[in-house]
Nucleic acid binder design. Structure first.
Lengths: 334, 334
DNA sequence: ACCGTTACCGGGAACGTTCACGCAACACGT
DNA sequence: ACGTGTTGCGTGAACGTTCCCGGTAACGGT
């Protein structure tokens, strides 16, 4: 009582022809009589035949599957994954998603497993712990194409897709300056992350560009969370020389910041302005609606998928380094 | 210059033994001399050998992959998928995620493709358009286990995991009644969705339970979006007999509702109360923080994965129908 | 009558594993 | 001397495809 799904062989036997002819007929290859082709197609249809893609993969050495490795399921990644999925499905690829939970160890294991599952390529956003890139070099050695996105590493030789963080930060801070704010603080992300560094650099550039000398006291480190947004804001507001504006590394940090400020009687944006970075769907729903730098997450995912698929189909395409521009969304928090 | 990854055969040849011995050695099977086993393991390690899981799948007829089909990438699904992924990865399964974008046609095609990819099972949340279940019956016929979650269909014979919507809605409305609200309106979801019906039923039950006769005018239909929350609220507040509380089918609808109410000068919760359903992360950040029914999305996903994996490992387990309880989160909007 | 071409089809190997057998070698007890 | 076990290993088929190669038959041209 074996649960055999129907194969090319069944069709061949039933029609009294060989499996190779059936195979040819089904894939619209030449060298098959139109009549036999019709008969094969008819039978295949009526039997609801579906080729076993495992077997196809074994011979073609292509799985039409790509591995996606993210460090968490933050809003940004959900959006980005949505973009990847939409692009890949239209090109007949499927995505396999894994979460490293910010662990370098897990990241290594997961990538290894995905390779053993013979994915055709990988789209990776590095974990917060990742400082060593040997596991990525291994991919290069095995000639498995991969693209880094969002959390990238500068000195890894591969294609990358991310947002122009420096430019986004510059725009945000510049906007604050134009609005008349002068004492602008920055709640930065984990300092070892490239995107944190870049956003901070944009912040510094904007200040210096306006002739304002940044102070170290005005830069404080968060971990992206709402809670740390609250904490950092508290510290900032206990400074002798209080800021009149805060540029936050992420929307969530900004939520925390606004939350603390309101609770402690500050009026936004009159007494103090807050600007975020991400452009979450909800940023417009909080009170006051958040002025923020919108990252096109969906587009980042889609682009990453596009770059990868190109490199899968054509292995010797050169690497690209795509930085997608952000857009400033002006609302009422600044 | 073929990019051959290393196989069991290479190891066999290099060691002068047969592939079956290597296979046995690597999988800790009996019938192999400890010495040869050691040699095999050593060589495999030094060559960084990873079994080709495609080939393994072909013979074992197991892919250790499960297909996840969702209608959109809403917050709830992102959370649920996170739960699935965490559970499955720990059991050495991988998930393949596809988005039907609320289309019945796409849902059918995607499921068919996933089957041809030989997934070991499926976790499905139905599209809004799905009224015909033939594609699910097809799965049953092929003996591919699948579980429905969240957007389930009552008359399909399979395992299901969802939230106890009726109970959640009852709790929410009952809470409003206890708080003294009497004229409670309901912004419902698309009426053909089972979860809409159940939440509405919970709402009705709570009212009748308190001796309040519900009025048809107080029930109005949304599509889950923030925008429709605004629209529905506007209609409700233009009624001759205005409600003093609104029970919303989702948090997003509640955001829209609150948004409209504030813009039009209503004070919450004094003049009118709003209660949501979902328990998004952001529901506590809006003004006023939203009282809502928290759906444990992560847990739903995890449970769905657990139920499916059980049924994959043991095909003749009976179906289960799991309803996970929600919890009322009391905040300031009611 | 001969040869070349074309159209159609089948045989068999290959992809990288696993698995059921079978077999040799040796040990043990009678 | 004989049977009986046990240990360790190899052979070959199987999983469901694709692909290379070769073969046959028919046809047309000289």
């Amino acid at each position: 009582m074996k649960n055999r799904s129907i194969t090319i062989k069944h069709i061949a036997i039933k029609l009294g022809i060989s499996t190779s002819t059936v195979s040819r007929a089904l894939r619209n290859k030449p060298d098959v009589n139109p009549e036999t082709r019709a008969k094969v197609e008819e039978l295949a249809n009526s039997l609801n035949y579906e080729p076993n893609s495992i077997a196809v993969s074994l011979v073609s050495k292509r799985s039409y599957t790509i591995g996606v490795v993210v460090p968490c399921y933050h809003f940004f990644y959900a959006e980005a994954i949505s973009g990847m999925e939409e692009f890949t499905i239209d090109h007949n690829y499927y995505i396999m998603i894994c979460n490293t939970r910010e662990s370098y160890q897990l990241e290594k294991e997961i990538i290894k497993k995905l390779v053993s599952k013979r994915v055709d390529g990988l789209i990776i956003s590095l974990s917060r712990e990742t400082k060593n890139y040997d596991h990525l070099l291994e991919l290069k050695k095995k000639e498995i194409p991969y693209v880094l996105f969002n959390r990238i590493a500068e000195d890894v030789d591969t294609s990358k897709v991310c947002v122009d963080d420096m430019d986004g930060a510059f725009t945000a801070v510049n906007y604050l300056i134009k609005k008349g704010y002068r004492k602008i603080a920055h709640i930065q992300g984990p300092p070892d992350l490239l995107l944190s560094q870049r956003r901070k650099q944009g912040y510094l550039n904007a200040l210096r560009n306006a002739g304002i000398e940044p102070s170290d006291d005005d830069i404080i480190t968060s971990d992206f969370s709402v809670k740390s947004g609250r904490l950092c804001t508290e510290k900032l507001m206990n400074l002798a020389d209080k800021p009149d504006a805060i540029f936050c590394v992420s929307d969530e940090v900004a939520y925390g910041s606004i939350n603390w400020l309101k609770k402690n009687g500050y009026s936004i944006p009159e007494q103090i302005a807050v600007v975020g970075f991400t452009g979450e769907e909800f940023s417009e729903l909080i009170e006051p609606p958040l002025t923020t730098i919108q990252q096109p997450a969906y587009e980042v995912g889609l682009k990453a998928a596009e770059v990868l698929l190109d490199r899968i189909e054509n292995k010797n395409l050169p690497n690209v380094n795509i930085e997608i521009k952000t857009v400033l969304v002006q609302r009422n928090s600044a």
